[in-house]
Design a protein around this nucleic acid. Sequence first.
DNA 1: GTGCAACCCGTAGCCACTACGGGATCAAGC
DNA 2: GCTTGATCCCGTAGTGGCTACGGGTTGCAC
Lengths: 135, 135
Amino acid sequence: MMARRTLTIGRLATAAGVNLETVRYYERVGLMPPPDRTVGGHRSYAPEHRSRLAFIRRARELGFSLDDIRRLLALAEPGRQSCSEVKTIAAEHLLDVQAKITDLTKLAAALADAVRKCGEGDVPDCPVIEVLGRA
Amino acid sequence: MMARRTLTIGRLATAAGVNLETVRYYERVGLMPPPDRTVGGHRSYAPEHRSRLAFIRRARELGFSLDDIRRLLALAEPGRQSCSEVKTIAAEHLLDVQAKITDLTKLAAALADAVRKCGEGDVPDCPVIEVLGRA
DNA sequence: GTGCAACCCGTAGCCACTACGGGATCAAGC
DNA sequence: GCTTGATCCCGTAGTGGCTACGGGTTGCAC
């Protein structure tokens, strides 16, 4: 039997909007602490697991790596004077993201250009192939 | 001894700007055809390998998956009336890229917002952590 | 002929999961 | 109390696109 206010792994995963296997994975890699177990060996999660998993999920949505998240979780411990360290991690990640946007934007322009030429008809060879094939 | 105009794997890789191991990998997964070998077993590449590898590399730079590239290479064979199929692949990829840009742009805005708040001082808790931690 | 760079191959590692399979457990209905 | 079916257990392998490693061969210039 399970104490009140505890969650099975399945309910925890559903509540946080992640895959059940992902929760086990996070435990394996040390992002989620091992929960209590029922007599039969099933995982039994407390509310703090739930908020921790939600934290991880939101950080993943913002594109932080699991390594970043590990550090963020450590810095999120109450009482840590950590805002500047957190800011560093987030600011670095922001730079990464901005760089990726720049790259992808150029890439999209090149793709759009090639695709647009395809639609104009009267092209001897496929413009996309031509773009890729030219030395 | 190696016939004139052929390349070792190392020179081919350098010429195309990819890692030597990547060339072997492309051969393993069927993107590059197996080249001739020297008596001693070393790979000996002809010029057409070079242009094929360059094609692959440019397609990778445009973010096409290896599966996409496999299809593009098949469609790039001379004589194929393939422009519309190529266009389909490229247009789908363009949509993916544009969607990714949209996502990343939102993400960058959220990150920038959290980071900016960090700099304002007079914040009780770290705004980044607060964003991640709130239900 | 000798030295050393370049190559060979198979395998394992990276990230962040996801899937699979065969067996155990849980909870609800009767 | 018993059956049933959902849920959970664990270990392992697969994904994409490489990259690295290591121990052994080959190529080529001197």
